[in-house]
Design a protein around this nucleic acid. Structure first.
Length: 409
DNA sequence: CGAGATTCATGTGAAGTATACCTTTAGGCTTAA
DNA sequence: AAGCCTAAAGGTATACTTCACATGAATCTCGTA
C-alpha cells in the first residue's frame, strides 16, 4: 500500500518536467565560461601573476572586496587558465588554493601548513608534530624540484585575526630558504581594514600588489543573472520582474552576486517543488527565508556541543525574557542546562569566547557595553529571523538530547 | 554644580593544565645464519 | 647478529582553566561658586 503510493510519487516526480536545464550553473561552485563586469580586476590580477609563465616569481598579491564581488571566482578562474597554459608549455607551476575559514582544516597555523604539505602527498598527523617540523616537511616537499608555487589563501583575514601574522611572515621567508622553488602568496580578504593592523613588514610583503573588487551595481547583477538564468532554466520559466527584484535584493546588501544567484536558484527549486510552471516574485521572498534558515541550521549542526549548549541557553533565555540579555544571565542558564544534560560546564571565561565566536558566525549579535555602575557586559541578541527559531530549538534539543518539559512559548 | 574618584560585572590577555596524538628509543623476542 | 614488535619516554597542538588586570559609564564624593 505504502510502497505503491511512494512509487507513484516517484513516477510523478520523474514525469514532471524540471524547470531547470542545468541547476549547477546557479551554484556557487560553478565556473562560468567568462566572467562579466570584472574585466579591469581580471586584467590587473592576470598581469600581476603573468610572470609565472616565464618561470619568474610574481609579486605577492592582496585581493580585497566584500563578499560576492567575484574575488574567489576571478582568482580561481585565472589560476585555472594559468594551470592550463603552464601544462601546455611544460612550465612547472603548482597552485594551491585554501580557504582559511574552514574549521578544523585551515584555521590555525599548524593546520594550514599541514594542509599545504598534504597537497604534496605528505601525511601530516592532526596534532603532535612541532609546527617547525611541519614547515620543514612542507619546505622539503616544495624544494624537491624547481618550480613556482602559488598559494592562494582565501578569507585570510579570519586566519590572521585568530593566529597572528607570523604565519605570513614565515611563508614569505620561504623564498630565502628554498634553493630551487619560489613561493608567491595571494591573500584574499573580505575585511578591508584588516591589512592595516598587520605588522608593517608583513603588510608590505603581503601587499606588494593590491587589487580592489568593488561591489557590483544592480544593473551588473541583473546582467549576470540574465546570462546565467538563460542557460540554467528552461525557456520562459522566469516571470517578468523576478530577475530585477532579485538583483535589487542583492544590491541592497552591497552588491553580493553570489547571494543573488543563490536566491534565484532556491526560488527555482521552491517553485519546482510546488509544481509551478514558472518562477514568481513570491518565490523570491520564500527563497530568502529558506536560505537564511538553511545557513543558520547548517552552522548550528556543525557546531561543537558546548557551542550548541551555549546557543540553546541564549535562545531560551531570550524567549523567556523580554528585553536585553547579558553574559552573566546566560552563563547561569547555561550551567543549568549543562546540569540537566549531564555535561560538565565550562568556565565563564571560555563561554565568553564561545559567545564571541557565535557572534563571528553571525548567529547572534553581541555588543560589549558598559552599564556604568553596574559593570560591563555583552548585550546579546539573536540575529536570526523569528521564523527560524522553532526549528533551531528543535534541532538543538535533538542534538543535545534534551526533552523539553514545559513549552515556553 | 561639576570634576574626579569609585565601583561593578565582565571583557580580555597571559600563562598553566589536561588530553590526545606523534616520534624516538630501548628492550625483548624471534629468526636466520 | 639482524630484524621486528611493543611499551615507555619525551615532545607538540589544541581546548580549556586559572589568574590577574583592563574597561568604561553610572554613581558617589567633595570642593567650589
Amino acid at each position: 500500500m505504502q510502497g505503491k503510493k511512494l512509487g507513484r510519487f516517484f513516477e510523478n516526480y520523474l514525469e514532471k518536467e524540471s524547470l531547470f536545464l542545468d541547476k549547477g550553473i546557479l551554484q556557487a561552485s560553478y565556473m562560468p565560461e567568462e566572467i562579466n563586469h570584472r574585466d579591469e580586476q581580471m586584467e590587473q590580477v592576470a598581469s600581476i601573476l603573468a610572470p609565472v609563465l616565464k618561470s619568474e616569481v610574481p609579486s605577492n598579491l592582496f585581493i580585497y572586496g566584500k563578499t560576492g564581488t567575484g574575488k574567489t571566482l576571478t582568482i580561481k578562474y585565472i589560476c585555472e587558465q594559468l594551470k592550463e597554459i603552464s601544462e601546455d608549455k611544460k612550465i612547472s607551476l603548482e597552485i594551491l588554493y585554501l580557504n582559511c575559514k574552514l574549521k578544523k582544516i585551515a584555521d590555525t597555523e599548524y593546520r594550514l601548513i599541514a594542509q599545504l604539505a598534504r597537497h604534496f602527498g605528505k601525511a601530516i598527523p592532526p596534532t603532535g608534530l612541532p609546527t617547525d617540523e611541519v614547515y620543514n616537511v612542507f619546505f622539503n616537499a616544495l624544494d624537491k624540484k624547481k618550480r613556482i608555487i602559488l598559494v592562494v589563501l582565501d578569507e585570510i583575514d579570519q586566519l590572521i585575526k585568530k593566529t597572528g601574522d607570523e604565519l605570513i611572515y614565515n611563508l614569505t621567508r620561504v623564498n630565502t630558504e628554498l634553493k630551487r622553488s619560489k613561493v608567491s602568496i595571494v591573500g584574499v580578504s573580505n575585511d578591508l581594514t584588516f591589512i592595516n593592523n598587520l605588522d608593517p613588514r608583513v603588510k608590505s610583503s603581503l601587499s606588494e600588489e593590491e587589487v580592489l573588487f568593488p561591489p557590483y551595481n544592480a544593473i551588473q547583477i541583473q546582467d549576470i543573472l540574465k546570462k546565467r538564468s538563460k542557460s540554467a532554466f528552461q525557456p520562459n520559466i522566469v516571470e517578468a520582474g523576478v530577475i530585477e527584484k532579485c538583483a535589487a535584493y542583492a544590491a541592497r546588501d552591497h552588491g553580493d552576486a553570489r547571494r543573488a544567484l543563490e536566491l534565484l536558484r532556491v526560488a527555482g527549486e521552491l517553485a519546482e517543488r510546488k509544481g509551478q510552471k514558472t518562477i514568481m516574485i513570491e518565490n523570491l521572498d520564500e527563497a530568502e527565508d529558506k536560505i537564511e534558515k538553511d545557513r543558520v541550521l547548517e552552522i548550528i549542526n556543525s557546531q561543537p556541543k558546548q557551542f550548541q549548549v551555549t546557543l540553546y541557553a541564549i535562545i531560551l533565555k531570550k524567549s523567556n525574557q523580554k528585553g536585553k540579555i547579558f553574559t552573566g544571565e546566560i552563563y547561569d542558564y547555561y550551567k543549568q542546562v549543562c546540569n540537566e544534560i549531564g555535561l560538565r560546564p565550562l568556565t565563564q571565561r571560555r563561554v565568553s569566547d564561545i559567545i564571541a565566536e557565535l557572534d563571528m558566525a553571525g548567529i547572534i549579535n553581541g555588543q560589549v557595553l558598559s552599564k556604568g555602575r553596574y559593570g560591563r557586559t555583552r548585550e546579546i541578541s539573536l540575529s536570526v529571523p523569528e521564523s527560524v527559531k522553532p526549528k533551531m530549538i528543535s534541532i538543538l534539543e535533538n542534538a543535545l538530547e534534551i526533552e523539553r518539559k514545559n513549552d515556553s512559548f
